[in-house]
C-alpha cells in the first residue's frame, strides 16, 4: 500500500505536511519523530479517525486497524477479554468462541484469560489482548502507535517479539510508530523519520541508523541514551 501526498490541517496548523510513504506488503515500517512531529496524526488519518487530503491507495480502509499506546484505556473496562476480542468478528455465534481462542493463542496468551477483565491482567498481557482484537478482522495494515511506551521494560520485550513473529507467521504489514529509536530499529525493516509534519528521511533500517543522510536524523541518533557511555 502507499500513502500519497497526505496532508492534515487543524485550522491554520498543518500537522502532517504532504507525506508520501510506501508500506510494502508484509513489511514493518517504523516511524520515528518527537512529540508534535505529526506521526500520531498520520496514523489517525490513515485509520480514518481524522479527515485528510491526499490518498491512501492499495488498502481497503475497513481493513486498517490500530493499536493504541495505553491498553488500559483502549480496552473497555466493563467487557471481558473474550468479549473485547470477539467484538470485531463477523462470524456466526458458534464459530466465535473458536476464533477468540485462536487469536489469543496467536498472541501467546492462555485461552483461560478470555473470562478475565482487563484490570486483572498485566500491562503486557493487556497490550497483547488489544493486538489480538485488531487481528480479528484480518487487517491488511496494522498501525501500532507507541504500543510499548506505557509498558515496563521487563514486559516490553515480549510485545516486541510478538510483533516480529506476527510478521513472520502471518505476513502482516505494519506501521510501527515510536519515539524510541532503539525500539523502532529492533522491529522495523524500513525506517521513516518525521519532523514538524514532514517526512525528512526514509530508507532500510540499517542504512538510516548506520548512515543517516538528514541532519535531524543524526541529532536524534546522537541523543539516544546508551548504557555505559559515560
Amino acid at each position: 500500500m502507499i500513502i500519497k501526498n497526505l496532508t492534515v490541517r487543524f485550522g491554520a496548523f498543518t500537522a502532517v505536511d504532504d507525506v508520501t510513504l510506501e508500506i510494502p506488503d508484509g513489511a514493518i515500517v517504523g516511524l520515528v519523530g518527537e512529540s508534535g512531529s505529526g506521526k500520531s496524526t498520520l496514523a489517525r488519518a490513515v485509520s480514518g479517525l481524522v479527515p485528510y487530503t491526499g490518498a491512501v491507495e492499495g488498502v481497503d480502509p475497513s481493513r486498517v486497524q490500530m493499536v493504541f499506546q495505553d491498553p488500559l484505556t483502549s480496552l473497555d473496562p466493563r467487557m471481558t477479554v473474550g468479549a473485547s476480542v470477539a467484538e470485531g468478528l463477523r462470524l456466526p455465534r458458534a464459530a466465535r468462541q473458536a476464533e477468540v481462542e485462536r487469536l489469543l493463542t496467536l498472541v501467546s496468551l492462555p485461552v483461560s484469560l478470555a473470562e478475565r477483565y482487563p484490570r486483572e491482567l498485566s500491562g503486557g498481557q493487556r497490550q497483547r489482548v488489544a493486538i489480538a482484537r485488531a487481528l480479528g478482522v484480518r487487517p491488511a495494515l496494522l498501525i501500532a502507535d507507541e504500543i510499548t511506551s506505557a509498558l515496563d521494560v521487563s514486559v516490553q520485550g515480549a510485545v516486541l517479539n510478538l510483533i516480529r513473529s506476527l510478521r513472520e507467521e502471518i505476513g502482516l504489514s505494519m506501521l510501527f510508530i515510536s519515539h524510541n529509536l532503539a525500539v523502532v530499529r529492533y522491529v522495523s525493516d524500513v525506517v521513516a523519520v518525521m519532523h514538524r509534519g514532514r517526512l525528512v528521511e526514509m530508507g532500510p533500517t540499517e542504512e538510516v541508523v548506520g548512515a543517516p543522510a538528514d541532519d535531524y536524523t543524526r541529532s536524534l541518533l546522537e541523543a539516544v541514551p546508551r548504557l555505559g557511555r559515560s
Partner: peptide, 16 residues
C-alpha cells in the same frame, strides 16, 4: 530486555 542501537535484530529480545 532493553533494546539499544547495537541489539542483534535476528534474536528475540529477553523479557521477564
Amino acid at each position: 530486555s532493553l533494546p539499544d542501537m547495537e541489539t542483534d535484530r535476528s534474536l528475540p529480545l529477553a523479557s521477564i
